[in-house]
Nucleic acid binder design. Structure first.
Lengths: 386, 386
DNA sequence: GTCTTTAATAAAGCCGGTTGCATAATAAGT
DNA sequence: ACTTATTATGCAACCGGCTTTATTAAAGAC
């Protein structure tokens, strides 16, 4: 008895999404005729669907803005300002927050440094600060995404974290959610960065991506079929959890030691400028980590590897060295290309807000299966580098 | 303009599948009323759908076979004999073939040894032999699944194979398909074994399974979200493709060397009987391979690990030793359980026929998205051990 | 003020589903 | 052998969603 109703309503729902997408893709107002042509739906249907969407507040009628002869067409516009979604990246040294509208446009952004141990309240503070930047009304906030370093359980607790030990065991998602009265999606920072790169960064267009972050420690995260690989115990990619398996020998308590130049960045820059010692040190480093990377590649055989490490302009040195080192590990010539991260350090916070869109799509838009605006989320990157 | 038609027909199609499933699940004849109750569809709808299915030959009306008072209900039965699906496991020493009906029942089975190099024609021969066993009419054959050792490309060629070098580079799937006039699904043998174990073997009920075959060489295959992980170059799980990465030190050109007893099976049996030397040798072996297994576990973090190795009755010795060795490698206590393969050597051929059901479901049944009868395929295992 | 052009609305029909009711087919009772 | 109780069938009516077709409304152009 529910089947028929369900199927019929599903069809209407699908058409709502189709019309909303057509309206949101072209970001100025559109007439019913155009939407009808674009979606393949008949004019009366489009009209009925748009009425529903106007009712729901997702679409607003606009002035016809006529040009030619004939009766002016009623125009409609996606009400992208109807709701807000926030993303927060709570790291060991600071917090970043971003606020987007329903179309994924970046409306507010904040970056706060911190010396003291982190507190849960700094998450809400960052959201408020980002909202104040553009005088946004947080009453329209629909959902929040949160990125944390460490093993994040499905229930929103932080099971383990070397970077934020002060928050381990706390019900973080629950606390923030109760405080803000909004749903909170929470996940590991590297996993969210990988997702952002796959959806709209260097891995765009590929569904299977391995993301590699090379800093003072090495982190791996994997996106398969367009979704983050979590694993039964949320340990997928946690290669550091293997005993006695240090990635490199020149690491001392989580700090990489470089000899040719004081910092990793300096070594990269020098190698890029032609310094042979620096290049040799990088090649040696890559050779050390290549074995385990090769194993990861042979387990999942991804389409592409996105690498974040060192300053963006010098990443080519690291990439080529790593590529060569990995190639030496493999018996077959088939190997995914290694490309530099496109989103850099922003990837984490973009992944956070994006995953909120993904997980709470229905609550955010009020329709089922509306796709998240990853394209725009990741595209508005320039605004930050101002 | 196609949307409405499409949605409506999709609904009808879904209802066809629902009715067919209800009919196939209870494998004797069912009345319209029962199906209606089971599917939640109304009686007139069920009747219309069944008429379609009878038309398509998938369902046959049956004698009412009444019992109580009242007008006898028309009964219908799933026409499981309407089509056949074959699976073939072409190995280095022989070939196995199985033939199932539409419900996944095993109707024919054959096992042929071979000393000479393999030929493609032995695939068809095995199918014919299996059909002859039960006097089956291969005119009803709908699809074929084929398992091969080595790297199998998506187009049906064998890219690399240590076990069957004589077939490398040949368009195997295409040749068999043209010869039989039927679609042929082809894949790597270990991958298909993993799939069979996940769908109806020791990994039943789990969607993320790592399958480990421990013989003279070690093979890994991974099922994620219920589908075989293939990888961009079909190399997912091919850990042997990493240079210099021998799994164990007591291997000589692909042959494991045992000292306490002549064969691996003998070592396992002795250890099971309490032989300390044998147990020590097994523990040493497991310690050697545990590192790489741990890495695989940390990359994908599966729900369960299915292990095939040694004779079934002594597998507990190997499993416990392996479990302990892997546990020593991991920093976190979370670890998937290790269980013994339920399908044994049959897993490969069962996976072959099952993947044919999966891939050619529409052609086999004539309806969209009818689920493969994995349960019955893997359940009829006893018939072989006769 | 009328004509032309374009869009909105209304009406009718299709397809798939459901509910409700009269009817047919049987076993059991007399 | 006939009636009755019982059960499933088959038909009719209706709903929800979409489409097509025809009619009406609203603007600019002459």
């Amino acid at each position: 008895m529910d089947t028929a109703r369900g199927a019929a309503q599903a069809e209407r729902s699908a058409n709502q999404v189709a019309c909303l997408r057509a309206l949101a893709d072209a970001d100025d107002a559109q007439t019913v005729g155009v939407i009808s042509a674009e979606t393949g739906l008949s004019r009366p249907t489009v009209h009925a669907v748009l009425d529903d969407l106007v009712e729901a507040g997702l679409v607003v009628p606009t002035d016809p803005s006529i040009v030619g002869p004939g009766r002016p067409a009623r125009a409609f516009r996606f009400a992208r300002e109807a709701g807000l979604v926030a993303g927060v990246d709570l790291g060991p040294r600071g917090v970043r927050a971003i606020i987007c509208d329903l179309s994924g446009r970046r409306l507010g952004y904040t970056e706060l440094k911190r010396d003291r141990p982190a507190e849960i309240s700094s998450i809400q503070s960052a959201i408020h600060a980002a909202a104040d930047e553009s005088a946004l009304d947080l009453g329209r906030l629909r959902a929040v995404g949160l990125a944390l370093p460490g093993v994040v359980e499905a229930n929103g607790h932080l099971r383990a974290s070397l970077a934020l030990p002060e928050l381990v065991g706390l019900p973080i998602a629950e606390t923030v959610s109760q405080h803000l009265g909004r749903p909170v999606a929470i996940d590991n920072d590297i996993k969210l960065a990988a997702l952002a790169e796959q959806r709209g960064g260097a891995g765009r267009g590929y569904s299977d991506v391995v993301y590699l972050q090379i800093g003072h420690r090495l982190s791996v995260s994997i996106v398969l079929n367009g979704v983050i690989r979590q694993g039964r115990h949320r340990l997928a990619g946690e290669l550091g959890a293997q005993r006695g398996m240090r990635w490199t020998r020149n690491a001392d308590r989580g700090q990489l030691i470089w000899t040719s130049h004081p910092t990793g960045e300096a070594v990269l820059s020098a190698a890029a400028a032609g310094d042979a010692d620096a290049q040799a040190e990088i090649d040696d480093f890559c050779a050390q980590i290549a074995g385990r990377i090769a194993t990861v590649l042979l387990v999942v055989d991804p389409e592409i590897v996105v690498v974040r490490g060192g300053p963006a302009q010098d990443s080519a040195v690291l990439l080529r060295s790593l590529e060569a080192a990995v190639e030496r590990e493999l018996l077959f010539p088939e190997r995914p290309p290694f490309v530099a991260s496109a989103l850099g350090r922003e990837a984490v916070v973009l992944g956070a807000v994006g995953t909120a869109f993904d997980q709470f799509s229905t609550r955010i838009y009020g329709v089922h299966d509306y796709p998240s605006p990853w394209r725009r989320i990741t595209h508005d990157l320039e605004r930050t580098s101002k």
